[in-house]
Design a protein around this nucleic acid. Sequence first.
DNA 1: GGGAAAAAGTGGTTTCTAGTGGTTATTTGT
DNA 2: ACAAATAACCACTAGAAACCACTTTTTCCC
Lengths: 150, 150
Amino acid sequence: MSNFLGSHAINMDAKGRLAIPARVREELAHACGGRIVLTANADEERCLLVYPEPQWEALRPQIEALPNMNKAARRLQRLLLGHATPLELDSAGRILVPPTLRSYARLEKKLMLIGQGKKLELWSEERWFAWLDESSDEEEMPPEMEALSL
Amino acid sequence: MSNFLGSHAINMDAKGRLAIPARVREELAHACGGRIVLTANADEERCLLVYPEPQWEALRPQIEALPNMNKAARRLQRLLLGHATPLELDSAGRILVPPTLRSYARLEKKLMLIGQGKKLELWSEERWFAWLDESSDEEEMPPEMEALSL
DNA sequence: GGGAAAAAGTGGTTTCTAGTGGTTATTTGT
DNA sequence: ACAAATAACCACTAGAAACCACTTTTTCCC
């Protein structure tokens, strides 16, 4: 099972392509043969999610099955299903990010790719750093988290 | 079980590598054969955490299992998983700190490595001393701490 | 509707920088 | 004084980024 960790600064070229870092490329190669699905993130942070295709296929039916009389559920469906795009790495290990997703996540030239275990997140560098600087201690923690000893 | 104690001043070279002190290297060698995981610290002090790989592997599932519809949990995941980088000491006992982590913890040439029992903390020397000066004992304590007799 | 021009997408090549490994010199501790 | 450990230095390599050339699609104008 794939296990993406760490973060990488990467650049998008003028045509909206980005080169996946070599380390991550290896992970992807044996997790899904380079076949990935790119989609939008549902929470308030406008970043993109990068799933190995099998991971996505496991997740998709769960999203589709949500009770869609519920507003939050409909929102999740529209965002995730509505943006999902299957992609393959080209011969140089690059992917082309569709214009819709580019603008959803406000991607400019400088990006950050963040490992999150079974998936990756793709952020505009500017937004990532802004998010890091946001203070956090106002949030309330779930009990599992209170109990953690790092 | 590993038991890191004490603090060491160390230098980072121009390429972002640092030599682990011999004492610590020995500890690491028999705790994890030199296989470590470097990641970000979640609290407001921007330092890095150095885990022997087995320690990290014990911790990782707990972090991944947090309910990630919760904001505080997501933050912890992004910080810890998103920065975690497995590293091995090279033939000279050095590690290369990835650029992302370097900038997260604002590491310059002079660093401090602080033993914290099962893990180590890596600080910019400047920030470490600043923290020593500013931190106070005014905060309120958890009950377990009240009961301590030093 | 046809053609020209522009834009977007694709593939490859070259250049340069960051990473890697190793070696030598200097310092420190015994 | 000697040995060990650290710091500085140098050479080599691989990866990323910038660049360039070509193809396909779209758009706009005639």
